[in-house]
Amino acid sequence: MSSQTWAHISNGLVYSTIVVLAVALMAFAADLAVGTGRKRSDLAKQRRSSLARQSVGTSGDTALVAAASPETAAEQRWARVGVSLTGLAAALVVAAVITRGISAQRPPWGNMYEFTLTAVATLLVIWVAMLPKRPEWRDLGVIVVLFNVLLLGVAVLVLYRESAELVPVLKSYWLWIHVTAAIIASSVFTVGSLASVMYLFAERYERRDIAGQTGGVRDAIGSRLPGSDQLDKVAYQTIAFAFPLWFFAVVAGAVWAEDAWGRYWGWDPKETWAFVTLVIYAAYLHARATAGWRGRPAAIIAIIGLAAFLFSYFGVNIFFVGLHSYGGV
């Protein structure tokens, strides 16, 4: 088959992914509407009586999960549909990445469109693959899927480029090392920061619930989310995993820049924003260990981290001129 045909197949797979994800999004929304809400309010009551936590002789988290009334199969139905569809979408987008690679006859990481495609594939695969080990990640479904639909939309509408050869500076094995680490790290950062977004809603709801003054859209959302300590934990664990990897990606990029441009660090806009992202997530890890900064402030920092990452990813290529502005957009 010709390179063009493979590229067409890849595009078709991307469109299918978007459709499947859109349906998955509806399923997760339905799940929020009918399912977790009830379980969630049980959890909030549990949390309020901290004694409940100590009287159970096992770990705090298992205690909470065990004590909450178990969801019925009917309650889980929509979440299950969502997870299955997301699994299908993950498979489709992985196939899209592979066919794109076959079309270009190289790993498909040559321009922003391809980076984005690979990042979506990585994010979805990581999320689906982690579910058996971390069932609590299922509650992130709605926001993870929403985020990926948006990413794919931007990729198709704004970033799309015909499949083609690499420019000379990208012909380096450091590209594969640097890009692989950056894509995995940023996918995991994204999961963590999205958990922090949900944390803000859940935490607000819990605070107001205790004060007996819930109401409004934000609380309606908050009341249907998992408990804030659960979300906080997901955020911390993911960001703690991604941080060293991101650090590594930045260092690998520097080693590569030293070969390509004759200096390991030149404060090019892309480098600057990778640095800013790193420092903000370092601040998040610090905040988690600083009295008075845990919880809400830390979550806000994690969200700023995601904003900085997104800017370093899209904003820099769109707004600034720099050495990294290769491969179109």
């Binding site: 404060w267 600057t272 800013v276 420092v279 600034f320």
Partner: peptide
Amino acid sequence: LALGAVPGSI
């Protein structure tokens, strides 16, 4: 530090 690095990209 993060904030201070930003103007250099603008």
